[in-house]
């Protein structure tokens, strides 16, 4: 059996692919920011002295981390309209992604808070720094340095995960694959090309984050 691979017919669709890349990055950045905002609230609840708050945070994290994103997406997009909440595909996708990311973000941030030792805070205070100064100059830098690698790899993970939202018709890079496929009937070539595009994005962002880490944390930060 012989099959002629034709990647050249896809060249015409480079603008569509680039547009898809842009949309995927847009989804990833918004998801990351909203997810971290939710995660911060949940992380603070999870270390609060109030038992009910801690319990809620734990239920949130466990429920979201132990069910597939695809099912969460279907609940938001197909399920919520039956109780009167109608969302567009892109909005539903962003909500599901952010809620999902919130659970992972909460765990990363909590680990960050807990990583800074109490003695560091005491040292800052005994040098005469105020609580605010101690937080800014002592705690924050160390905490961010600790969680930075986790956040960087989480961003790449989100970028790859956003491909799932194409299943409800949200417009991003993987959605473009379905579009190009429907125009060219070159399914294998199309999906290979799109998959490789993600690889390029992943490698580029890993290099970028490693560079930022080096500049900010490895090279001596100026006082």
């Amino acid at each position: 059996m012989s099959y002629n691979f034709k990647f050249d017919v896809l060249l015409r669709y480079v603008p569509e692919i680039l547009q898809g890349v842009f949309l995927t990055l847009q989804f990833s950045v918004i998801t990351m920011l909203c997810g971290l905002a939710i995660g911060l609230i949940v992380a603070m609840a999870s270390i609060s002295p109030l038992m009910p708050l801690r319990a809620c945070a734990r239920i949130y994290v466990e429920a979201l981390r132990n069910t597939p994103l695809l099912v969460q997406l279907f609940i938001v997009f197909f399920g919520l309209p039956s109780i009167g909440i109608r969302l567009g595909a892109n909005t539903a996708a962003l909500i599901a992604l952010s809620i999902n990311m919130g659970a992972y973000g909460a765990e990363i941030l909590r680990a960050g808070f807990e990583s800074v030792r109490q003695s560091q805070i005491e040292a800052g205070r005994s040098l005469g720094l105020t609580a605010g100064q101690t937080f800014r100059h002592v705690v924050l830098f160390q905490a961010v340095k600790t969680i930075y690698p986790a956040l960087a790899s989480q961003f790449v993970l989100i970028m790859l995960t956003t491909s799932v939202v194409s299943s409800i018709g949200a417009t991003e890079l993987f959605h473009q694959a379905a579009f190009i496929d429907s125009r060219t009937y070159r399914s294998f070539e199309t999906y290979t090309l799109i998959t490789i595009s993600y690889l390029v994005l992943t490698l580029a962002f890993r290099a970028f984050f490693a560079g930022v880490y080096w500049v900010v944390f490895v090279r001596r930060p100026r006082r």
Binding site: M1, V156, A177, S187
Partner: peptide, 20 residues
């Protein structure tokens, strides 16, 4: 290669690629 591409992409590549 595996960790840098979406699983969904891998699934589609295999689904359309294996018959070829």
């Amino acid at each position: 290669l595996i960790q840098g591409t979406p699983l969904l992409g891998q699934l589609f590549v295999f689904f359309f690629g294996l018959p070829l």
